[in-house]
Design a protein around this nucleic acid. Sequence first.
DNA 1: AGCGCCGGTTCCGTTGCGGTAACCGGGGGT
DNA 2: ACCCCCGGTTACCGCAACGGAACCGGCGCT
Lengths: 124, 124
Amino acid sequence: MTASLNPDMFDAACPTTAMPFQIGDKWTVMVVLCLEDGPRRFNELRVPLRRVTSKVLAETLRSMERDGLINRFAYDENPPRVEYELTPLGRTLLDLVDAARSWCSENMDDLVAARAAFTARDPA
Amino acid sequence: MTASLNPDMFDAACPTTAMPFQIGDKWTVMVVLCLEDGPRRFNELRVPLRRVTSKVLAETLRSMERDGLINRFAYDENPPRVEYELTPLGRTLLDLVDAARSWCSENMDDLVAARAAFTARDPA
DNA sequence: AGCGCCGGTTCCGTTGCGGTAACCGGGGGT
DNA sequence: ACCCCCGGTTACCGCAACGGAACCGGCGCT
């Protein structure tokens, strides 16, 4: 048992490195959740994410649009109006995000307890 | 439709911020995968993750131990031997990781195509 | 003329993750 | 006496992400 590990299992060229919420982007997942119930405007998104600045939100939305996760509709009005909505591809992320949230709600107690026990053992 | 967004849906105090693979840690998920088939030694983990240095791996393993995702067994031998294995809690992450990997393999083509189309539209 | 709205962009500063290289302790081999 | 092994630790550093604040254009209102 315990077969040996493939040295190339995490090849740098592996395309999963480009996963959209790259286990790295701070806001993508939250934007997906905010768009779950329909299109939203730019400043409308900033309300629930009130810790994000317009600069960072604009960057996040642009990269999500680049990856085909959202569509951007700019209406030629005044004052300007822009709406973002999930694409079908973006909607498929909802399942994944829900799975992550379920994991959290199911295991958060264990996790908090583990942290408390660890810091009790090793107060450093 | 499109109910208004709850301003507090991402409260900074929300414990999900402490999610172990916090959509932010670069190595935790890969360590989980490396430990899927049984316990591994420190330098054994560095082989598949050959891009990680001992410092970063040590940090990752320590925080995973802190969160109760792995157990650390240090044998009093020479040369020293240390083994890491997933706890039951850590094993529950495998489902989530598999879901993420499935998403990738199912949608990677769309994603790559979307990027190509976007950069074709907006070469900037 | 001046102000506000909206959806950004620009400039600048900070933070912190991740990386590199050097070193360590203690036993065993030669 | 020296070096190697393993599993780290320490000091230092760079860069990208994140953040704050100011600014912009075009229109309408007063």
